[in-house]
Design a protein around this nucleic acid. Structure first.
Length: 706
DNA sequence: CCTCCACCGTACTCAACACG
DNA sequence: CGTGTTGAGTACGGTGGAGG
């Protein structure tokens, strides 16, 4: 799609007036034809440029078929001229007015700079004991005030724009002098208004770059555990509020923290009273507990829903309460957390207590969701490749949200995969189709001859391992500190983290703990915390005790830093006496422990970078069940051509390599009687060369008469 | 608060079967 | 021949109550 001033016309209709009749510009026309572009049309007025009497349509939007197909509702409007002799073009993607009629209230930072604003708040803040209704009243008053102070400019602007559009529309039909003069007048006036508006917006958007107070938190004495439960003080509330970024995030009620900070003198008393009430009663008014889910774009031009990131905005007062709670916890957890994240994390650590018992019945909704998604597509209308792609992108993505925090029972995974399997082979509602290739083969990565689908069960495990990995490595995160404190997790790498009484999430993470321990590796720092024979610290060989034949000789508790000589190099002779030569060589390649390199650290053993990724862990989990890697598969996926052809070859290769030689597939006789003149038959055959592994397929198409 | 035990849900294995 | 489905039998581990 291209939009703008092309300085050329495509037909004689694009020009009016002037001496010469308009002619199609040959170069521009040829360009449009060769690139298969279409004019996207426009709404009246007909011309976008005029100088004196002649008018032409020099500005336009063009797009190709794909564009027209993707945005059938795209609409071009010629806006009124203001400064130049060209009209601006406006492209809208929907006929209906996209403006939401009841736009939620928003507090604008610029209001604070209006000279009358403090006076206004003073007069209109009538605290009646109920903060909810008081805030509501203030919101209404603010909206009225805004209309009165700023509203007239927007109103006047809209009126002038309408007038200008009318005059210019009339000018397109007759070039009367009086009209031109009138137009010039209106344009001057409008320009004046726009200038004022610009100043206004500049003023509105400017807010003080206030330096935040350096983390001054209440120092609660650590010994006094009761301090956690004691009443909230006004100072505590104030410091929590003033710690919030003033204009960073809009609350669900339309107010930012900056408003409360600025007007603390007037509002403070009521807020303190309300916060104390919340802490005493343990409940929060539902009006402030509302959360606004907002979709923000991850990329500039989103193409699918995955490219939106939903964030939840809660009201400032709700965040304030959360922040006070978080501040109190901060005195216990020595490291502080990101200020704006407090509310989010406080909510997150609750989640694992919510899910206490998950049974088959509770997760059945997952199966239903996949089923619903499936039946909305007509399997027959899609090619095999299309169904695979769909299954890949949509169906297996649905359960992944749940799988990140819970262990989905195998039965649920099985039934979801069963649904997907049937869909891929084109089964209709309730019917069955023969699967030509085993599900295990389909779920291989492409280089192993599969279609790149993933097994849910192992994907689930990989997600859970990620939680466990974070528990070990991300010690600075609040949720990790909360969980570690709750379950008495003090060692760097305990053998088991299973507790008799724990949340569901902790339990499932504990289940995968052994697997996790096998897949993390120590990087030697000072060598003091790594057990030399039991821990995994030599890359690719695993714990060393498996190589030692006589287990009685070694002292199992000796640490890695005891394995160096006085001059700081490895005690090679010691290793040589017990370990095979190749293992010793690996040890030599590791820098020996020294005090200057800091403590030992843990990282993921399965990636070269040591960073944990769900993908690499999944591959690690599955790799035992994979077929041999065959370069031919890579060759198949690199064949130029449509994806569906490659998938067909891949599929055919599997099929025929099992049958070796396939006899002719006879057309299904029952279809002949339905409409013989419209039937076409495809006979296919294929074979695989058993030595080279290459396969070939072919087919003959003939009509109903043969 | 700990231990024991019955109960129950889940996972695993195997065989039989349908399908073209 | 390979694939998936079903059902039966078995093993395992968590849950919750009883008792110490």
């Amino acid at each position: 799609m291209a939009i703008g001033d092309f300085n050329a016309i495509l037909s004689s209709d694009d020009k009016k007036g002037g001496h010469a009749k308009g002619r199609r510009c040959r170069f521009f026309g040829n360009f449009m034809d060769s690139t298969l572009l279409h004019d996207l049309g426009f709404q009246i007025p007909s011309f976008t440029w005029h100088r004196g009497f002649p008018s032409e349509r020099l500005d336009r939007a063009v797009g190709n078929d794909a564009w027209v197909e993707a945005f059938p509702n795209c609409l071009i409007t010629h806006l009124p001229r203001i400064k130049l002799d060209h009209r601006p073009l406006l492209m809208k993607f929907c006929y209906t007015d996209t403006c939401v009629p009841n736009r939620p209230f928003r507090f604008l930072a610029g209001w604070l700079h209006h000279q009358n604003f403090p006076e206004f708040v003073k007069h209109n803040w009538r605290f009646n004991g109920n903060l909810v209704s008081t805030m509501e009243e203030l919101t209404n008053k603010l909206q009225e005030w805004n209309k009165g102070v700023y509203g007239h400019i927007t109103h006047r602007k809209r009126k002038l724009l309408h007038k200008l559009a009318r005059i210019q529309h009339a000018l397109d039909f007759s070039g009367s002098n009086s009209l031109s003069q009138q137009e010039a007048l209106v344009r001057d006036e409008l320009e004046d208004i726009l200038h004022h508006e610009e100043i206004l917006w500049k003023q509105k958007s400017r807010y003080p770059s206030r330096s935040l107070p350096s983390n001054v938190f209440l120092r609660l004495s650590f010994e006094d555990v009761a301090s956690l439960g004691k009443g909230v003080t006004n100072e505590e509330i104030k410091s929590a509020l003033f710690d919030m970024a003033p204009w960073k995030a809009l609350g669900s009620d339309g107010f930012q923290a900056g408003f409360f900070q600025n007007q603390w003198d007037i509002l403070g008393e009521a807020i303190c009273e309300w916060v104390k009430k919340v802490f005493e009663e343990g409940t929060i008014d539902p009006e402030f507990n509302n959360t606004l889910i907002v979709l923000i774009l991850k990329v500039k031009t989103p193409e699918n829903f995955a490219q939106f990131r939903p964030i939840s905005l809660c009201s400032v007062l709700y965040k304030l309460v959360m922040k006070i709670i978080a501040n109190r916890f901060k005195s216990i957890f020595p490291k502080i957390i990101g200020q704006e994240q407090a509310g989010f994390i406080a909510g997150r650590s609750i989640i694992d207590n919510v899910i206490i018992r998950v049974t088959n019945g509770m997760l059945n909704f997952l199966v239903e969701r996949v089923h619903r998604q499936l039946s909305s597509w007509d399997a027959k209308q899609l090619s095999f490749a299309g169904r695979v792609t769909l299954a890949h992108s949509v169906l297996l993505a649905i359960p992944s949200y749940i799988m990140q925090s819970t262990l989905v029972p195998k039965g649920i995974c099985d039934s979801i995969e069963k649904l997907v399997r049937q869909f891929i082979w084109g089964a209709m509602e309730g019917g069955k189709k023969l699967a030509l290739v085993g599900w295990n083969n389909i779920c291989q990565p492409k280089i192993h001859g599969g279609l790149g689908l993933r097994r849910l069960e192992d994907q689930n495990k990989a997600f859970l391992l990620k939680i466990g990995y974070s528990l070990i490595t991300k010690i600075e995160a609040l949720w990790v500190q909360v969980l570690r404190a709750k379950y008495g997790f003090h060692e760097v790498l305990p053998v088991s983290i299973m507790r008799s009484r724990c949340s569901y999430m902790w339990k499932v993470v504990a289940k995968t703990w052994l697997l996790l321990c096998k897949n993390i590796i120590w990087s030697i720092g000072n060598g003091r915390s790594v057990r030399c024979w039991e821990d995994n610290w030599v890359p690719t060989v695993g714990p060393l005790n498996q190589y030692v034949l006589d287990q009685g000789i070694i002292i199992s508790q000796s640490k890695v830093n005891e394995m160096v000589l006085d001059n700081g190099v490895w005690n090679i002779d010691l290793f040589r006496s017990w370990l095979p030569e190749d293992v010793v060589n690996r040890i030599i390649s590791i820098p020996p422990p020294s005090e200057s390199t800091g403590p030992d650290t843990l990282s993921c053993a399965r990636t070269t970078s040591g960073v944990f990724s769900v993908k690499s862990v999944y591959f690690m989990l599955r790799k035992d069940s994979w077929n041999s890697k065959d370069a031919n598969w890579n060759f198949v996926w690199k064949i130029p051509g449509p994806q569906r052809v490659r998938q067909f070859i891949c599929w055919a290769n599997h099929f025929f390599s099992t049958f070796k030689v396939v006899t002719e597939h006879r057309p299904n006789q029952s279809t002949t009687s339905q409409n013989s003149s419209m039937c076409f038959y495809l006979n296919t055959d294929g074979a695989t060369h058993s030595v080279s592994g290459f396969s070939a397929v072919g087919g003959v198409i003939y009509d109903g008469k043969g």
